[in-house]
Write a protein that binds this DNA or RNA. Structure first.
Length: 494
RNA sequence: UCCCCGGUAGCUCAGCUGGUUAGAGCGGGUGACUGUUAAUCACUAGGUCGUUGGUUCGAAUCCGACCCGGGGAGCCA
């Protein structure tokens, strides 16, 4: 609290702290977090209450026990020293096992052991909940496989790994909002329920209140969605882009950040049926502006995570991906590699590598191609720009060459496509002809076409998979390990 | 959805060219010891070997089907 220099008092959660003009701290109520104690915010000699869950307990026959607790506030555990003189020592403290909850009143003291600067000399340890059946409690102080932890998604927040993931996820989300806020973007909450299929970005989940067993039928015997809740077929959104474009052409700089749904039968470490997507859209901008935005954006988020989560990142570097910190630092310091799609194809063809799919102008880049470019050729994230129009969506802007569109993908080592974006086709006539090519019904998109009729401007935007970003930051390789409750084909447990 | 690999104690795994009572480490319990650090040492409990059919005198082990998980691919963020 050194930054607080004038007399003041504040209440944060359950604690009330009063400061005098000299900066001394008087604590009235003293429920504090492990982070505050270990961070040196609480002077030694102060009586406090700390609360959390037991990680390990060790007993000394000299008549006391060491209890390590974690409350999620930070990576590190706090050591409680419990003397046998405590009233519930025999019946309570000696029965503490991993996972039990404790509330401890005690004094912050300098530690007499190594491994921590301070610890709590307990005066009283309340135990709201022991672990029943401790020999079957799944979370032990040892290595667990990620596969196993997914089967206990309700308990894995208690592990080092998932605690770190949760804190980093929070900080990254905050950083995303901060980045856009500082750069004049407005957060637009686009609808979750939608009647339009955004460019066929993927299979959609149907939203309906019809009786599935006996639905109303039209005269032709088809299901009568006119009788459905919204009077038409509706789905969960696969992208907020089309909706946010309308706000872009009024607010200039906007973004969405929310859940997105894809009913694809994708069984990979990179796909979820429910994930969070960030979609900025900026007016009066071209593809180059967009690539710059993507780069600035990623660098800002990475920087924030490194600054605010050093302990968590150190853990991932030590246990998961040795390069986790170094590669973020390198990325922050160096410009992204940008290349034309045509150039990427040339590089792949000249590489002499044997690919399962032969790189040829006109095909979409395969995972093996992306990996070569990011992991071997550039050893850095790569922005590939201007793809053949046949392999990209209808709304992407047709380039003057007539055969490519102003699309870009940001590819990250180990993850593949982390961002996909484009400059949008703002010319009404061109957009209509591209819609015709894609056999899209103009009536469905009439409002989207209006945006080109009434004060159209060049604009561009991208989509970023939030969980893929977290995979890249943490080095965790499976997308199911960076979201609290993963939804994948055949699995909606918890 | 396709290709490959796997499912043995609460967890991580060994055992699998078929053959007595299926093992280890961690975790749990008991005890010893210690300002301890995923402590250490001793003892101990704990398993219908994914499910289901089949081959065989005999199956954790071989074969089929199914379920679940992992890796890779496609689709994409």
């Amino acid at each position: 609290m050194p930054s607080l220099q004038c007399a003041s008092s504040s209440i944060i959660g359950d604690q009330a702290i009063t400061f005098n003009t000299q900066g001394s701290v008087f604590i009235i109520m003293q429920i504090v977090s492990v982070r505050q104690v270990l961070g040196g915010e609480i002077p030694t000699g102060t009586e406090v209450t700390v609360q959390g869950w037991v990680r390990t307990r060790r007993d000394s026959k000299a008549g006391f026990s060491f209890i390590h607790i974690n409350d999620g506030s930070c990576f590190a555990n706090l050591q409680l020293v419990a003397d046998q003189a405590l009233a519930n020592y025999e019946n309570g403290i000696l029965r503490l096992t991993s996972g039990a909850s404790v509330s401890c009143r005690g004094t912050v003291v300098e530690s007499r052991g190594r491994g921590q600067n301070v610890e709590i000399q307990a005066a009283e340890i309340d135990i709201p909940g022991l672990v029943e059946d401790p020999d079957h409690y799944p979370i032990q102080p040892k290595h667990h496989s990620y596969e196993f932890l997914r089967t206990v998604a309700h308990l894995r927040p208690r592990t080092n790994t998932f605690g770190a993931v949760t804190r980093i996820r929070h900080v990254a989300a905050r950083a995303i909002h901060d980045f856009f806020d500082r750069n004049g973007y407005f957060w637009v909450n686009t609808p979750i329920i939608t009647a339009s299929d955004a460019e066929g970005a993927g299979q959609m989940f149907r939203v309906s209140t019809l009786d599935l067993v006996n639905p109303p039928r039209t005269d032709e015997g088809k299901i009568d969605f006119g009788e459905d809740f919204f009077g038409r077929e509706t789905f969960l959104t696969v992208s907020g882009q089309l909706n946010v474009e309308a706000f872009c052409l009024a607010m200039s700089k906007v973004y969405t950040f929310g859940p997105t749904f894809r009913a694809e039968n994708s069984n990979t470490a990179r796909h979820l049926a429910e994930f969070w997507m960030v979609e900025p859209e900026l007016a009066f901008a071209d593809l180059g502006d967009l690539a710059t935005l993507a780069e600035d954006f990623l660098k800002f988020v990475f920087k924030q995570v490194l600054e605010r989560c050093p302990d968590d990142m150190a853990f991932f570097a030590e246990r998961v991906e040795p390069e986790a910190i170094a590669r973020l630092e390198n990325l922050i310091d160096s410009p992204f590699v940008r290349m034309e799609y045509s150039e990427a194809i040339d590089i792949l063809q000249a590489s002499g590598k044997k690919f399962e799919f032969k790189p040829e102008w006109g095909i979409d880049l395969q995972t093996e191609h992306e990996r070569f470019l990011t992991e071997q050729h550039c050893k850095a994230p790569v922005v590939v720009m201007n793809y053949p129009d046949e392999i990209k969506a209808f709304y992407m802007r047709l380039n003057d060459d007539g055969k490519t569109v102003a699309a870009m993908d940001v590819l990250a080592p180990g993850i593949g496509e982390i961002i996909g974006g484009s400059q949008r086709e703002e010319r009404l006539a061109v957009l209509r002809s591209r819609m015709a090519q894609h056999e899209l019904d103009e009536a469905t998109y009439s409002w989207f076409l209006d945006l080109r009729r009434y004060g159209t401007v060049p604009h561009a935007g991208f989509g970023l998979g939030f969980e893929r970003l977290l995979n890249y930051i943490t080095g965790l390789s499976n997308i199911r390990d960076v979201i609290p409750y993963p939804r994948t084909p055949g699995n909606a447990s918890f």
